[in-house]
Design a protein around this nucleic acid. Structure first.
Lengths: 130, 130
DNA sequence: CAGGATCCTCTATGATACTG
DNA sequence: CAGTATCATAGAGGATCCTG
């Protein structure tokens, strides 16, 4: 058997390395707007721009649009324009985007589930130096 | 049975809500420095400041210190000072921090594993409007 | 070694106004 | 409806110098 003929990727990515492309990718998916958008689409399926805007409270037009464009460019979601009047635009996760849903959802749920513990830790920490 | 006497938390957290505390928490844990720090400590166990600095390439003193302080305040890691000369400081994940390790690790691995697909998607996207 | 304190520079993000 | 374009600003984050 020739061990050199496997179709394993030759290049290894490592986000710990500053110049590794995966570092930048980790950075772009590691922010609240991206994660909330992914989770919203993961739970809601195909959604309109206005639906996303309503679901993700407090997101500005600019940030939502920018986030959607970035995720679309990275192949995580599709953008479908229906040329009606007024125009209708739908967003939906791609299989690639779906593969990111679970980790993202866990992150969001972690924040929600452990909020009390974190709050207690903060109080204890702040008390220690008050 | 009295349904009102369960010790279920009364308050529900929802990061989709702009004013929910979990939204801010999600934001603080959703950034590359926090995630890389958590994963580094998760894989490396107890680590010194200088070890973390070396492991997380490209992080500045300021960002590393700031990240460590925030994570310590949130109860995700402990900071242990050994008053030797020179001083030695070790960081280690708490059980709470450990509970965040898996989601974080998944996120980092996702970025590393899907980098080629994302790259292909970007090229396709950019070609479409070149 | 492990930071604290400063200064300075971008970038991220919000607010506002306009459009097909 | 679903944006684009512009302006303005807080804050992220780097560089540098200093210290117990």
């Amino acid at each position: 058997m020739d061990m050199t003929t496997t179709d394993e990727p030759v290049v290894r990515f490592d986000a710990f390395a500053a110049s590794c492309p995966s570092r930048r990718l980790l950075d772009t998916i590691s922010n609240k707007w991206a994660s909330l958008t992914i989770v919203a689409l993961g739970l809601g399926g195909r959604m309109r721009y206005s639906e996303l805007s309503a679901r993700i409270e407090g997101v500005s037009q600019k940030m939502l649009t920018q986030t959607l464009r970035n995720l679309e460019r990275d192949g995580l979601l599709t953008r479908t324009v229906t040329p009606s009047v007024p125009v209708r635009v739908d967003y939906e996760l791609t299989p690639l985007g779906m593969s990111l849903l679970e980790p993202m959802h866990h992150l969001k749920e972690w924040a929600e589930a452990h909020m009390p513990e974190v709050d207690a830790a903060r109080t204890a920490y702040d008390d220690g130096r008050a």
